[in-house]
Nucleic acid binder design. Structure first.
Length: 910
RNA sequence: GGGCGAUUAGCUCAGCUGGUUAGAGCGCAUGCUUGACAUGCAUGAGGUCACUGGUUCGAGUCCAGUAUCGCCCACCA
């Protein structure tokens, strides 16, 4: 395949100049869908399916989303390059409560409200609103380079999801896994709906603990005795109006005589029993507790045990209602203040004290949650959780990092039934109908039931439940509802269960748990093999990013500044799985610089093509017989990088992937590979074949690095790869190219070149320490073992240039070198190699500095030698450590001893 | 009240199954317009791996405890 040359690489790396165009090329080539026209997937391989949490349709992506999309995209691109049919299905979540919260805010600014519009107009407004917002997130994902199969875009409120919701609910109902019951639910007065336990955030606050006297009834008169009372402690005096008992601990002798008596509740003037119950902690407060069964979880349980009445005294907006007192109509806070005041006036307020407490607030609106009695739909979770636990315990589904499995176990084993009813409008209406006789009919028919299941009354007489489902109910079906379930579609057959579900650990229970429970129950299979939990992105101060804090980073702005590649790299570099990351500009700059480095390195390679190689020729593997040690080293290091990246990818260690690539590309390929190659490419004395081989080796290694880096930095690698000569069989686009295969390392070449690199480093170091003019050329005499002779001979001009050595003379023995050292100069000891820099150049070299340097080196070497000797002197070490370790220690000792001896020699302290 | 995690260079963080001299980026110091790159190059300084004990020939790594910070779960008014 002949490659088409487009515009040559610009001198400066400017991602904004090509990222959008690259994305368009991918789209045009139809390579994102596993079954797209441009897909090069091998259908014999198992599909790889990533499951992404569909972002809220009304929002915009923040850096956390960016990180996750990146991680997901890294996995999908890697799988695609391995030839697997790779599905990355994009989606949006209607996010009922979150969306309503956003819209309600907008309406409030317009002077409207949910109530003023009414259900139908409100929903119309919502649809208009999401039509505006839905594009935001999709655009962001594109800008970031997400290689999603856009043709399969789904939405949790589309017809497919709606049907899945109805069928799922009916199925649960038929299996007695969904039931309707009156229960105390968490009520948010701001959102005017119940919320699940998970949505209640325990918030520490300093409240007040009031002590209130309830007068005990006189047995004969039946009237409250002004002289006898029982004092209760409460943090919520307004709930006095709903009290139906006073409880004390059965063993509490202080109150033993009062149990069985009755007390008068003030204001409502209700007479209630004084009961004994184990829940009461006699050490807390006064040891007597007022019981409000309709507005407190503990009290509700107590009320049930004792068969107490449960009057509701707060309405939907948490105003006092139906108490027959003057407090009716007051907000709970105001009612509290008045009641406290009135109690004091009556002389029944015994005292008050500040009190540290934990209060439940709404995750969404931050309102104080008010427990309230409601008839709601619940999902019976115990049997579902049991199956979910089976899946994780058996390894059918793995949770990464593994430590989250413990949290999972704990939560799943203590799970409570899931309240799925929400008194909201934006969402899936619960498909339950009630007939006048109270019969319940659950139907999956989009038009509802035709008649009551129980008594046959016609549909016209049935009334549908006004509530909608918790938003997580529909997203809990996501892994299969998006593939056509409940129908047995080819997609469902092929792409279910998914491979990896990636999300932040903060929604492990909200979402992952629900998908697992519903998925297993409804499809018979766990919905994914691996749960990969990412950490949270935090700001540079370690705070969670949030709009209210104003520390949310402008995602598209960052891409405008540094490019999507740099952002992607920065988001996963140096991050351990599941660990939170502080994200600051330093990371982005590092990533941008890395991209810039790669850009310029490629420009160099392209510009260094020997004139004997045609510009548009196909790529050739360099011929082995023309390869020198530097080329063999370069190719072997590329092979080593393939091994390291494969290992890291296999374990989902993406931070390790970027670390390895950064180090290999910058520290090896650019710092040494290109520098070594430069001299040879310019060396006219070499045969053309040798120079060609050097260039082909550069191209070969660069090709490998671009492939390895592509999942992380897809745009720049695609752009640069397009400029490289391709091999026969390569596709036009890197995204569809194959992942590098593992090739054999050349350990001999690696050792040789690394020894020579150490020599160059040593010479540079000595020169710098001796404060020698960097540009000056000094004679260098080198002694090296015979085994390194050929490599040195080949690379001699390279070493000469990198070390500023002229002339560079090789000596066969150290003895010869020792004689030279006596004539002045710097001594360099680099492993087995040794060099003298600047003999006879007393003008350039300060003897005192050189002696100081050598003294320091000697000191270091002696210390290390002592440690090595001490280690070997330990008989237990020699006897018990593995032979390889002992051998290594011996070699180390010998090397150090040799070094010490040579340094002493030079310092005249033989 | 339970459970989990973190504590490594001035800062932000890697360090997998225990094994030579603990790494990176930024920052810092010194010096370089080296024909890919100053978004760069070279060289360097900087760490009793929170503390105490234990296991081991050998511990940043494993175990126990302590301290500090963070997170999750939990019905004490």
């Amino acid at each position: 395949m002949t490659q088409t040359h487009r515009e040559p690489l610009a001198k400066a790396y400017d991602p904004s100049a090509f990222e959008a165009a690259i994305y368009e090329r991918w789209l045009a080539a139809d390579v994102f869908p596993p079954d797209g026209a441009g897909s090069t997937a091998d259908d014999a391989l198992p599909p790889f399916v990533i499951i992404q949490p569909p972002p809220n349709i009304t929002g915009s992506l923040h850096l956390g989303h960016g990180q996750r999309t990146t991680v997901e995209d890294v996995m999908i691109r890697h799988a695609r390059m391995l030839g697997r049919p790779a599905l990355f299905l994009p989606g949006l979540d209607h996010a009922s409560i979150a969306a309503q919260f956003v819209l309600d805010g907008i309406l409030a600014r317009e002077g409207e409200s949910r109530q003023s519009l009414g259900r139908e107009r409100y929903l119309e407004r919502m649809r208009a609103f999401i039509n505006e917002t839905r594009q935001v997130i999709l655009t962001q994902q594109r800008r970031l380079g997400g290689s999603c199969d856009w043709g399969r875009l789904r939405y949790t409120m589309d017809e497919g999801s709606a049907r899945a919701v109805r069928v799922a609910f009916r199925t649960l109902y038929e299996r007695d896994l969904a039931y309707r019951a009156e229960a105390l639910v968490n009520w948010c007065p701001g959102c005017r709906t119940s919320v699940s336990d998970l949505e209640v955030i325990p918030t520490p606050e300093t409240g007040t603990l009031w002590r209130v006297r309830y007068h005990v009834l006189d047995e004969t008169s039946g009237r409250p005795d002004p002289e006898r009372w029982i004092t209760v402690a409460t943090t919520r005096p307004e709930t006095i109006l709903g009290d139906t008992a006073v409880a004390v601990h059965p063993g509490d002798t202080r109150y033993a005589g009062l149990v069985g008596a009755r007390a008068r509740i003030p204001f409502v003037e209700r007479d209630v029993p004084i009961i004994a119950d184990e829940v009461v902690n006699p050490a807390f407060g006064t040891g007597a507790v007022k019981i409000t069964p309709a507005h407190d979880h503990d009290d509700h349980a107590t009320g049930r045990r004792h068969g107490l009445p449960m009057p509701t005294i707060l309405d939907e907006a948490a105003r006092v209602a139906d108490t027959g007192t003057p407090y009716d109509g007051l907000d709970r806070a105001e009612a509290r203040a008045r009641i406290v005041r009135d109690l004091a006036a009556r002389g029944d307020l015994e005292g008050e004290a500040p009190h540290e407490m934990v209060i439940g607030r709404c995750q969404r609106s931050n309102d104080v949650i008010e427990p309230r009695l409601k008839t709601q739909w619940f999902v019976r979770t115990a049997p579902l959780a049991e199956k979910a636990l089976d899946a994780t315990r058996s390894g059918t589904t793995r949770i990464l990092p593994a430590r989250f499995e413990k949290e999972w176990e704990h939560w799943m084993t203590n799970i409570r039934d899931w309240n799925v009813s929400r008194q909201l409008w934006w969402g899936h209406r619960i498909p339950a109908w009630y007939c006048p006789d109270g019969h319940v009919t659950v139907s999956a028919d989009p038009d509802g039931p035709s008649a009551c299941d129980t008594c046959g009354r016609p549909a016209a007489e049935l009334r549908q439940d006004p509530d909608i489902f918790d938003t997580w109910f529909s997203s809990g079906l996501w892994p299969f509802s998006t593939l056509g379930w409940p129908d047995a579609t080819p997609d469902l057959e092929r792409y279910y269960p998914g491979s990896v579900m990636e999300t932040g650990y903060d929604i492990l229970f909200f979402w992952v748990a629900r998908m697992m429970m519903l998925g297993i129950e409804l499809t018979g299979e766990a919905p994914f093999e691996t749960v990969y939990l990412s950490g949270l992105i935090r700001d540079p101060l370690g705070q969670k990013m949030s709009k209210t804090k104003g520390n949310v980073v402008d995602f598209l702005g960052l891409i405008d500044d540094v490019g999507a590649d740099a952002l992607r790299f920065a988001l996963i570099h140096g991050a351990a799985p599941g660990a939170d990351v502080r994200f600051g500009s330093a990371k982005v700059e590092q990533a941008r610089n890395f991209a810039n480095k790669l850009w310029n390195a490629t420009r160099f390679v392209l510009g260094a093509r020997p004139s004997t190689i045609p510009a548009d020729g196909e790529r050739r593997l360099p011929e082995a017989r023309h390869l020198g040690p530097a080329e063999r080293w370069l190719l072997s290091r590329a092979a080593a990088t393939v091994e390291a990246v494969d290992a890291a990818m296999g374990e989902h260690l993406f931070g390790e992937v970027t670390r390895v690539l950064y180090e290999s590309i910058w520290g090896e390929y650019c710092d040494w590979g290109l520098e070594l190659a430069k001299v040879r490419l310019q060396d006219e004395s070499l045969p053309a074949e040798a120079r060609e081989a050097t260039w082909w080796a550069l191209v070969e290694a660069l090709d490998t690095y671009l492939r390895l880096l592509h999942p992380v930095m897809p745009f720049i690698t695609e752009r640069l790869w397009g400029e490289l000569p391709h091999r026969t069989g390569d596709p036009d686009l890197l995204i569809a190219a194959r992942w590098p295969g593992q090739v054999a390392r050349d350990h001999a070449a690696e050792a040789e070149v690394e020894a020579l690199i150490e020599l160059v480093r040593g010479i540079r170091n000595a020169r710098a320490e001796a404060r020698i003019e960097p540009g000056s050329w000094l004679p260098v005499d080198v002694a090296l073992p015979a085994s390194l002779g050929p490599a040195f001979a080949t690379l001699e001009p390279v070493i000469a240039r990198l070390a500023r050595a002229r002339p560079l003379t090789r000596h066969v023995s150290r003895e010869a070198l020792a004689g030279l050292a006596a004539r002045g100069g710097l001594t360099v000891i680099a492993g087995e190699l040794e060099a003298v820099v600047g003999r006879d150049r007393a003008d350039a070299i300060t003897d005192a500095l050189e002696r100081a340097r050598l003294e320091k080196e000697l000191g270091d070497a002696e210390r290390l030698l002592d440690a090595a000797r001490a280690r070997l002197a330990n008989e237990a070490f020699v006897a018990k450590a593995p032979p390889a370790v002992v051998d290594g220690a011996r070699a180390r000792e010998a090397e150090l001893a040799d070094q010490v001896e040579r340094l002493r020699d030079r310092l005249g302290r033989g």
